[in-house]
């Protein structure tokens, strides 16, 4: 793998972590949403990451150089799954979305869980930024050999 391949791998992780952070913030924003286009309260969403095979361009470059490219595995968001746990039910008879018995279904979202997840995403993002910075500096140094 060349140094640019390194950056591509880290960039894939930046994208994936950003999607994760987006999903978490959307969960937090909708913690009290009792109405959705598909009906019922908002359902908590979660991302599923999967290791990614190297891109075609990267594999071709490494095949041209005669090497195997077993080292480069980026990451991608394989799926965004919906949490199927039952909604929280609160007794609020005056609420417009209350059922006949006066109960309202709220999304089952725990802000503490979401914030911890958000922190994890943000730390992982920072870590990958460090990896990109390292790759950038290495490329810069290689260029400076010419000077």
């Amino acid at each position: 793998m060349n140094l640019f391949g390194m950056m591509e791998v880290s960039a894939s992780a930046l994208g994936a972590e950003r999607v994760r952070a987006e999903v978490v913030t959307s969960n937090l924003a909708n913690a009290e949403s009792t109405r959705t286009p598909e009906g019922g309260p908002y359902k908590r969403r979660e991302v599923v990451f999967a290791a990614q095979r190297p891109s075609f361009a990267l594999s071709l470059a490494s095949a041209g150089a005669g090497g195997r490219d077993a080292g480069s595995t980026g990451v991608r968001v394989r799926d965004v799954v919906t949490d199927t746990t039952s909604p929280l039910v609160k007794y609020e008879p005056s609420h417009p979305d209350a059922n006949a018995d006066g109960f309202v279904a709220y999304p089952n979202i725990n802000p503490v869980n979401e914030l911890a997840d958000l922190m994890g995403a943000s730390r992982a993002y920072e870590m990958n930024i460090s990896a990109i910075t390292a790759a950038k500096q290495m490329i810069q140094q290689s260029i400076e050999i010419l000077k």
Partner: peptide, 29 residues
Amino acid sequence: YLDVTAYRQGVVSANIANLDTPGYRARDI
């Protein structure tokens, strides 16, 4: 030496990229 070092750095960044991938095993040379 630089080639092997750069390769290792690539393996390390792949590990970092997969920090939260379920089932991923850290690799090294």
